[in-house]
């Protein structure tokens, strides 16, 4: 299942964003940020405790089932009074949730998390970015591994000179996408696919901002 992967901002940045805003309502999410332990019940509780210790007034808090769902407005109705008393909403969901809530409540929002990528859980507590929704899918030529996403430079014609023992030049924890692709294509007997000189990518497959209607 795809997940929105987030990381909590530093306490210093959150405190700076909150500045003189004294009264807050905190919102977490029961889906992705619960899974990544960045905005579930324990994290919301910890945030609330820290802010109360600072002398701020927390008018209430809630962990919504799915913050990015359009039904979020309904779920927040029963908290109307507490939300009304708050100067600002401190939101511990991904940016999809932040924007959904902001559009529904017409209230200033402050994100407590940074949204890193849309990822896939590949092991307990391990999430990888495997698709960047580029709009021009080339998985058919790369054995089903996306170099646009999995290669730090998004290269489509093979590895750069920084590849080292199958790892990326920016981080020995990250695999070199082109070593993975090479191994996969070799296993499939389709290295010819890697030998094809790929043209420059179309970076405007879906010009940003994306929009879709049926």
């Amino acid at each position: 299942m795809i997940r929105s992967i987030t990381r909590q901002k530093s306490e210093q940045e959150i405190d700076h964003l909150l500045a003189e805003l004294g009264r807050l309502f905190i919102i977490g999410c029961g889906t992705c940020t619960t899974l990544t332990r960045t905005g579930g019940e324990p994290e919301v509780r910890a945030m609330k405790g820290r802010l109360i210790d600072q002398g701020r007034l927390v008018t209430g808090d809630v962990v919504l089932p799915v913050a990015c769902d359009n039904l979020t407005q309904e779920a927040l109705k029963e908290y109307g009074q507490q939300i009304g008393q708050a100067d600002v909403l401190l939101i511990m969901t991904c940016a999809f949730g932040v924007q959904t809530i902001a559009s529904q409540l017409k209230k200033m929002v402050i994100p407590a998390l940074d949204t890193l990528f849309i990822g896939k859980e590949n092991g307990i507590g391990t999430f990888d970015e495997i698709c960047t929704q580029c709009g021009t899918c080339i998985l058919g030529e790369t054995g089903g591994i996306c170099p646009v996403t999995s290669c730090h430079k998004g290269l489509v014609n093979g590895p750069c000179g920084g590849t080292n023992n199958g790892k990326c030049e920016i981080d020995p924890e990250k695999d070199c996408a082109w070593t993975l692709i090479y191994n996969r294509l070799k296993e499939l007997g389709r290295l010819d696919s890697m030998r094809t000189l790929q043209k420059p990518r179309n970076h405007q497959g879906e010009p940003s901002p994306g929009k879709f209607k049926f």
Binding site: H152, K153, L155, N157, C160, K199
Partner: peptide, 24 residues
């Protein structure tokens, strides 16, 4: 050349372009 990642240099927050690669 493809070029090193910006993360290896002295402007680590810059955008790496890589619109083309070295063969392109």
């Amino acid at each position: 050349l493809t070029g090193d990642s910006v993360l290896l240099g002295d402007h680590e927050e810059a955008k790496g372009v890589f619109d083309l690669d070295s063969s392109q």
